[in-house]
Design a protein around this nucleic acid. Structure first.
Lengths: 243, 243
DNA sequence: CTCAATTTGTTCGTATGTATG
DNA sequence: ACATACATACGAACAAATTGA
């Protein structure tokens, strides 16, 4: 059933139980099965099941009473979500309550990682790295590569504000294509420490590339989100012919 | 640096090294640092670093020669991606090479899990559960709730074909809104065994809901993808005013 | 009030795997 | 290859609190 992985059993079981509470399978006040039953269900020893339940207890998700049972707490804290943009109007909106910290900024002739369809690299980029936080919790790391010629049109603005709204209005800048791809990956050491998560925790990796009329990738950004904060919403009727 | 987690150190280090190869930081033929350097970088013992490197060796990602060094193999197998739809035309396209297995199908008066904006539940649903596989590898589990009245219009078709293309053309069915939300979660025991992954591995959870003119949620689907297979592509210029 | 059943809480002993030096 | 330390996992037994007959 479990096993296969080398994550300790009690952590695996704890995650599965935590999920049942978060998802609502076990609502507030619900009496969870006794240790013997949990042990049988997950095929572990009673003590191991107890260790898993103890984790949820220390997280405040449950309370226990000897001779009575274990119950889901009334106030299960809500998860906070970060909304990920998938269309232009959302990209332009400044996110309320989000603090942006500039980690580094420098010119480079190194090309960003380009994917098929991103266009050809330009001669020199201005590279900057930013960390977005909400309520003091970091949730997004961005590596931005901006064509140096475009950057020089408004260097101060680009350094202090969000890039895309500037690009949207800057005279002389034509956006021919703007594409992004999303994949799920894991955090390496550097990303993990910046986003305050464990190494190898899941992250959402978003790759954005804008091209100009000449087919050059004049803006490329790699965004790395904490996976547990992400929520995306779509209107599926886009592109549908009216019947 | 590492720690925090209770995953064995050598596995954590192995994942981080594997990632460098997959992402392309260490291309084919690249000589990777010697054990002493890896041990220092990750702050582990030399033997632990060696144990991590040995994992990549057994996976065929690297080759080693005493007195020479360790090198990235030439043929690093490509990952196969599943594309996730975010607009209507893509939803209608039948996916090549994808096998769909019907796991269960029955009527129920139980309502599916509805989110804000999904609409009001109808009286009775037809519920079915399907498993999508490609090259014999399962990658997607779907729970579908379809208004029983709609289902009865073409039960045989709905049982054997993809639902959405049928809805698109079925006379008398009006789709007023069609929304989907995407989040990252983890696999519970049941999902893990169906998708052939470990419990608590990351999954992409997609929730789709269609409403009719009366504001009823006549189609609701919960899709669970293996996270490591997912790739989404967006054209960001949707919704942009022409300058 | 007492007793038995139930369920959590605690302790001991042992075996195995991980990590370091 | 070896010695040591530590965490994980199990089984078994017993103690303490709660409930209901």
């Amino acid at each position: 059933m479990l096993k296969e992985s080398s994550v300790p059993l009690y952590l695996q079981v704890a995650s599965l139980l935590r999920r049942r509470i978060e998802v609502g399978d076990w609502p507030a006040g619900h009496k969870i099965p006794k240790l013997e039953d949990l042990a049988r269900e997950f095929n572990v020893a009673r003590i191991t099941a107890r260790q898993a339940v103890s984790m949820l207890h220390s997280e405040g998700l449950i309370w226990r009473r000897q001779g009575k049972g274990t119950f889901v707490s009334d106030s299960v804290p809500d998860r906070r979500w970060i909304n990920l943009a998938s269309d232009w109007p959302t990209l332009l909106r400044r996110l309320e309550g989000t603090k942006v910290k500039l980690l580094s900024t420098f010119d480079t002739i190194e090309s960003p990682r380009l994917q098929a369809g991103d266009g050809t690299p330009v001669e020199a980029y201005h590279h900057s790295r930013r960390l977005h936080s909400k309520d003091k919790v970091p949730h997004l790391l961005i590596d931005i590569y901006l064509d140096r010629r475009v950057f020089m049109k408004a260097p101060d603005e680009f350094k202090t504000k969000l890039i895309i709204p500037i690009l949207d209005t800057l005279p002389g800048v034509q956006i021919a294509t703007a594409r992004q791809t999303l994949t799920i990956g894991t955090a390496d050491l550097e990303v993990a420490s910046l986003l305050d998560i464990a190494a190898n925790d899941p992250v959402v990796e978003v790759h954005r590339a804008f091209t100009n009329e000449a087919g050059e990738a004049f803006f490329v950004a790699d965004l790395t989100y904490r996976a547990d904060f992400i929520k995306m919403e779509f209107d599926l009727l886009h592109g549908r012919d009216v019947k």
